[in-house]
């Protein structure tokens, strides 16, 4: 209740230009990924916010798991105000009270597709599809095609845990006639692929080997993969249909008890605003969560951006998956990697 009240006051304050300079001398710390995301957030969110409020915005760069660990380590004394996390992390942060629950009365909440705010506000929608070598797969593959004997031991995977590997396990379970709530089905089906050809930590590693045909295919998340394909003529990417791609989300969170809660809310409003969301889609192929965004051309075809498209996606039970994580990590290490 207190948060809601603070939020309403904050938005009222933000709406009054006369109070704009009230934030001078304050520094908002935003944890996010480096590279294009940092650039887009700086141009479309941080700079306008700095101009409007007189505050400074600093980015703390790292991977989302680094930020997750930092949030827990600094839980009594947080230094971050806003953090970007994956859907496989956000619900846990809310459960442990480290982030402020999304406020259903806020403009940000209302602008976002219904049901997408889980733990934090949904920032972008991407799908887990298949990146593949075009020589080895003349036709874009379906999930089941990866299990053909020709590709045994030639499928690459992301490390576990990650959205990719949780999603791929869920797909494997569905191919075995179950879903992610049946880990035995998921793991034994996935183990049929043979040991992963590669556990990749960056696009460079996997694309070099996939381009050369050493890796046949890999479950990968749209977005960066789509925006990189222009550099790799041998590599394709497809959203399969049976089952459909797994819905993966980036989330933006307000850190609980952070030094600058008002500024944090203003940052989040701009981040999920039409301008930023459009830039994400057009430059990075990240699907917007803001329902008012209208896209055209390549951005419209490449991204997940309509409720109809979202309906074709596989939605996972993330709180359940998070609960299973310690046990599934053991199983992954032994049954998938240790084959």
């Amino acid at each position: 209740m207190r948060h809601r009240l603070v939020g309403t006051v904050a938005f009222a304050v933000a709406a009054l230009p006369a109070l704009a300079q009230d934030f001078a001398g304050q520094t908002l710390v935003v944890g996010t990924w480096g590279g294009d995301i940092e650039r887009l957030l700086r141009t479309h969110v941080a700079e306008p916010l700095e101009a409007e409020t007189g505050a400074r915005v600093e980015f703390l760069l790292g991977g989302s798991s680094d930020r997750m660990a930092k949030l827990y380590a600094e839980r009594d004394n947080p230094t971050m105000d806003v953090t970007f996390q994956n859907i496989y992390e956000a619900p846990q942060l809310l459960a442990d009270g480290l982030v402020v629950a999304p406020d259903p009365e806020s403009p940000a909440f209302k602008a976002i597709w219904e049901g997408m705010n889980e733990g934090c506000y949904a920032m972008s929608l991407v799908g887990l599809g298949i990146a593949y070598n075009k020589q080895l797969f003349p036709e874009p593959p379906e999930w089941a095609d990866l299990w053909k004997p020709d590709y045994h031991g030639r499928i690459a995977m992301a490390p576990y845990p990650s959205s990719e590997s949780d999603g791929f396990l869920a797909v494997a379970a569905r191919l075995a006639g179950a879903d992610e709530h049946d880990p035995d089905a998921a793991f034994s089906k996935l183990a049929e692929l043979g040991p992963p050809a590669l556990t990749y930590t960056s696009l460079d590693e996997i694309f070099a080997l996939m381009d050369a045909g050493e890796v046949a295919a890999a479950p990968m998340i749209s977005g960066y993969v789509l925006s990189s394909l222009a550099d790799w003529e041998n590599i394709g990417f497809v959203f399969p249909t049976d089952p459909g791609p797994v819905l993966v989300r980036d989330m933006v969170c307000q850190v609980a008890n952070s030094p600058n809660p008002e500024l944090a809310r203003m940052f989040i409003e701009r981040a999920v605003g039409v301008e930023t969301q459009t830039a994400y889609a057009e430059e990075l192929m990240f699907g917007p969560t803001n329902s008012s965004v209208t896209l055209s051309g390549e951005a419209a075809t490449g991204t997940i951006n309509t409720p109809e498209e979202v309906a074709t996606l596989v939605q996972l039970d993330w709180p359940w998956l998070i609960e299973q994580r310690p046990e599934w990590t053991e199983r992954w290490n032994r049954e998938i990697l240790g084959q």
Binding site: W33, G34, G35, I37, L61, G62, S202, L203, Y224
Partner: peptide, 14 residues
């Protein structure tokens, strides 16, 4: 190095 790694995990080497 922190900047280098921050980008690696999403996009690969800058």
């Amino acid at each position: 190095p922190v900047r280098l790694y921050a980008q690696l995990r999403g996009e690969g080497i800058d």
